[in-house]
Nucleic acid binder design. Structure first.
Lengths: 115, 115
DNA sequence: CAAACAGTAAAGCAGAAACTTAACAATTGA
DNA sequence: TCAATTGTTAAGTTTCTGCTTTACTGTTTG
């Protein structure tokens, strides 16, 4: 449970491609087979397979095969991790701005000349 | 003002690199010059510059030059956009699970055998 | 002015990514 | 059984990334 920088790499990398985001989008509406994922995408099945492998490596998606069909589903824990990273940076910045605002307001109210 | 897929590409792509995430992390604590951003990174200045250009192209960071120093700061709006995309997919999935849970609970309580 | 400083531009390179096509399973349904 | 369905493997091609080095511009400072 330490620095999962590597996993963040993989997750953001995975989300950086429109085809893969489309697959995630589809999966967010429910599980799907590989060919269902491929259907709206303008590329060969093996290409989709490779995207899927990336999504699995990143932890964003999990799949299992029964019979001849592989069923894929989203892994919300991983999504939450990516979301958290961004959110933490954003709020860190926003809180900093708040403090700065307070400080400036105080300066205007009670200036203790520092020049 | 709808889903700009191209910008999401750029943003997630930008976040996919550990050096760039480090830069964002630094900037989340306040503005910084290019060489301040470079300081903890084990690479040449031009390399950092290129990362910075990507961060700017993605909209995650903005910078302006005064004198000979370029000051960079984070753009929380863009961070929020990435955060939102992830969050929407995650909650879509989670709500689906809730509905499914309800359905199953009902099935167990009042089974209307469907064989 | 001259030197040091902060940043840029350009070119080149090795390795990774995103496909393709062409076989090759394994499962299922007629 | 045999043909269609669903997925998988392997290999090859092209393009993109993430650096590097070298050389240069503009800004400040002694």
């Amino acid at each position: 449970m330490f620095h999962d920088s590597a996993q963040l790499d993989l997750m953001f990398q995975a989300l950086a491609d429109p085809a893969r985001r489309m697959m995630v989008e589809r999966l967010s509406r429910g599980p799907a087979s590989v060919s269902e994922l491929a259907q709206p995408l303008d590329m060969s099945l093996p290409a989709v397979m490779q995207h899927l492998q990336l999504l699995e490596a990143s932890g964003l998606v999990h799949s299992e095969k029964t019979g001849r069909v592989r069923t894929c589903r989203i892994e919300p824990k991983a999504l939450r991790m990516a979301e958290k990273w961004i959110s933490e940076r954003r709020t860190s910045w926003e809180r900093r701005l708040d403090r700065l605002g307070d400080y400036l307001a105080r300066q205007i109210a009670h200036p203790k000349s520092r020049s």
